[in-house]
Computed example of a mutant assay.
Amino acid sequence: MNNDLPSLRYGRLIGVSLGPGDPDLITRRGWTALQSDARWTYPVKKAEERSYALDIVVRAGLAVPADAVELVFPMTRDAVALAKAWARAAARTAELLAEGRDVAFLVEGDASTYSTFRHLARAVRELAPEVEVETIPGVSSFAAAAACADIALAEEDETVAVIPAAYGVSVIDHLLDEFDTLVLMKVKPLLDEVLDLLEARDLLATSCFVEKVGSPEERVVKDIASLRGEKVNYLSLLLVQNPKRARGELRRGCRKRAAATEIGTVATTAEEAA
């Protein structure tokens, strides 16, 4: 009996961040991964539906390989349906990795920020713990949105928070007093409620709406009150700045320690002189 049979060698699972929509924002590292021998996989909401992530690559001028595989991640809050979809996607990905070839999962935006990829990687590792995972970082949608809207996310000692708008207006209201800039992701379901809050807080003029940033359908709206009652795209966000926010005194530990050292040195020198 031969006990020296080769063990199964899995390929690497690579999360390839593509940026939020503009193909020119694909990093060199991401571009290299796309042109490697890695098998492409990409997310869709329904079988044989258009993939936003895949569209970015196509607009970059790359041909979709004949063996590229779609993975279905339905837009639903049905826990049972979601669990089944995740199980299918993870099993299919593990099956591809078991062929020994790397698998590149195409990710819009950044693979570490509100991304399907991290969830997929965990699910795959539950099936095959030995799978190596590589994450290629990319430009986040809110960084690209701030750039195209000519807005600074933070300057000097300012603070930034990034949250899904789904946390609700009470949480948003609280965070407006804690951060200089608030990035509200996926604002579609609560847009009118958020607009009402920003109007009450007198922050409409210092807020900006950005939809499908970097794509051919990109839209930047600075008169955000005009959006009331409008059905916006799922891929939309609000950048909210609160210039009137009261800030506490900053604790600059290094500077204080440096000052204390200087005082101690002066005192020692004075004692020696005496």
Rank of each mutant, 00 (worst) to 15 (best):
V64Q: 08
Q35N: 15
V57E: 09
F117H: 11
A38Q: 07
T116E: 00
Y52T: 13
A38C: 06
A90R: 05
A87Q: 14
H119L: 13
T116H: 12
A94Q: 14
R50S: 14
A63S: 08
R118S: 15
T76Y: 10
E99S: 12
V72T: 15
F105M: 03
P74V: 08
M75Q: 04
D110L: 05
E95H: 13
V69P: 05
L106A: 00
W86Q: 10
V58E: 14
F117K: 08
A89Y: 04
S112N: 14
E95P: 03
A66G: 04
A47R: 14
V72Q: 09
T32C: 05
R118L: 11
W40S: 06
H119T: 13
K45I: 02
H119C: 11
P43V: 02
T76K: 00
L96E: 05
L54T: 07
R29F: 02
A33N: 04
T113A: 10
E99A: 14
L71C: 03
F73S: 09
E48S: 04
T113I: 15
V80L: 07
S51T: 05
D37H: 13
P65H: 10
D110S: 01
W31D: 15
S112L: 10
L120K: 06
G61R: 09
V72N: 08
L71H: 10
R77V: 12
F117S: 07
T76G: 11
Y114R: 01
R118P: 04
A94W: 11
A47Y: 08
S115Q: 02
R92M: 13
V69Y: 00
A63P: 00
Y114V: 01
W86G: 07
L71D: 01
R39W: 09
D110N: 04
D78H: 05
L120S: 12
A89N: 09
P74A: 12
A63M: 05
G100T: 11
P65D: 09
K46P: 00
A85R: 00
V69K: 03
P65Q: 09
E108I: 02
A60R: 14
T116D: 04
T93E: 11
A47V: 13
F105N: 03
V69T: 13
S115D: 11
S51F: 03
S36W: 07
A121F: 04
P43Q: 10
V72R: 13
L120A: 07
A90N: 07
Y42H: 04
G30S: 09
L54W: 00
D78A: 12
G30L: 04
D55M: 04
Y42K: 08
F117V: 07
P43K: 05
A98P: 05
A85Y: 01
K84R: 15
R39C: 04
Y114W: 09
T76Q: 01
V80C: 00
T76I: 12
F105E: 06
G100L: 07
T76H: 05
P74R: 06
A85K: 01
D102E: 07
D78F: 13
T32Y: 10
A38R: 01
L62W: 14
A111Q: 12
V44H: 09
A104I: 06
L54V: 08
A68V: 08
V57P: 02
Q35R: 14
A90P: 04
V69D: 02
S115R: 00
V103C: 02
V107G: 06
D102M: 05
V107T: 15
D55K: 03
G109M: 01
L71W: 03
